[in-house]
Amino acid sequence: MDAALQFISEFRQEIFILVLAIFLGIEVISNVPSVLHTPLMSGANAISGVIVIGGIILLGHADLSNPGPSVIIGALAVFFATLNVAGGFAVTDRMLEMFRKKRNPKS
């Protein structure tokens, strides 16, 4: 019980952001047409690569003169997260480009 209270008081701000973000997330994508389900999911997927910031912090402050697991695992985390971000946004763009092309009637 104490631990829970301590947790809440320690992370007041973060919990605040978290709860409001849930509502924001629901609000933002309500009424999305099914045409956009795939690109929306793919774009959101790229945003979840925001963990790359955690990876950068981890690898950024790792001690390179004495490389331990945090260097290797940190580098892997940055690598995978960046793959998610770059690949995710690129593939979403490619999908949406395809949708746009369709506007002009076939020649």
Partner: peptide, 26 residues
Amino acid sequence: AALAGFIYSNQAMILGGILVGAAGMV
């Protein structure tokens, strides 16, 4: 990603992650 954001008290990670989490659940 949002939960990892708690570790660093990082607002961008929390917000970005939860946004995706909520939208994904919808």
